[in-house]
Amino acid sequence: MSSGVEHLLQVLFNGLASGAVYALFALGYTLVFSVLGVINFAQGALFTLGAYFTYLLIGGAVGSNGALAGFQLPLALPFWLALLLAGAGAAGMGLLVEATAFAPLRQRRAEPLLFLISSLGAGVVIVNGVQLLMGAESYSIPAGSLGRLPAAVLIGGAQVRTVQLLLMAVAAVVLVVLTLWLEGSRLGKALQAVSEDPVTARLLGIDAGAMIRLAFALSGFLAGVAGGLVALSVSIAGPYFGIGFGLKGLGVLVLGGLGSVPGAMLGGLVVGLAEALVPAEFSGYKDGVAYGFLFLVLLLRPRGLLGKATVSKV
């Protein structure tokens, strides 16, 4: 009897862990969407970048295929520090993406479709840049990188890998901090003001450009950290591996409701759990579950689970 419960618990934790990754992704999209009203398609590339940065910073060596073949940083930072720095690096790249792909379009009030294309172009450049430098092979971060922490802990009889707990914890902390920050702090309120009414926000003395850059930096940081954690928990399956996660994160975002922070979290957990509950013999269909779910939700609730309806003015 207990083995059944343990198995379910195991499945639950696996689902929560991957749900946490999706949620982190969706939160990154949400930040940018809520200030600009557009989707940053380069988000998946920033995730990739975070993973590679983490790998390099802990002292990992480049394989034999890229332009940097055999290169290794002369330092080996602890995983924690590497992860934070990788997040910062991805945030920096996020700012660069904003400056090149978004700011010029923003200044001339281009239609949202164009942002989609130009940010996608930025993503293509980043991903192929990584491939050029580090090759297409997969990299993995040694399991012992968490230092003295055990590789797994026993919760209710289920073996839960520490990195999975870490992912959940990071996602939970980010959710709480982000919500408190958006609702409670001056800066957070300014960010929301820009998203609701940029003109009035400007009149109130809020620097919209700075708020937008802040959103990009934050979402880049989230993507980078998520990438580093996934690199540890699974591996880096080549430069394109962020794209697949990014796409699913996008689905999660819409599932939860665009622009809603709790919605992004809920969407991530729902999809993660639904995928984990797919029986092993149908595991090939796992990726389809998220999209099937998303498709149905959109047809039944076009604004997502927690999205607000907007009234169009005539």
């Binding site: 379009l105 281009a110 164009l114 294309i117 172009g121 993503g123 293509v124 192929n128 491939q131 050029l132």
Partner: peptide, 13 residues
């Protein structure tokens, strides 16, 4: 592919 990405990036701009 990097150049291709750049073209898509600057095209809309």
């Amino acid at each position: 592919l990097i150049v291709f990405g750049l073209v898509i990036l600057v095209g809309p701009i």
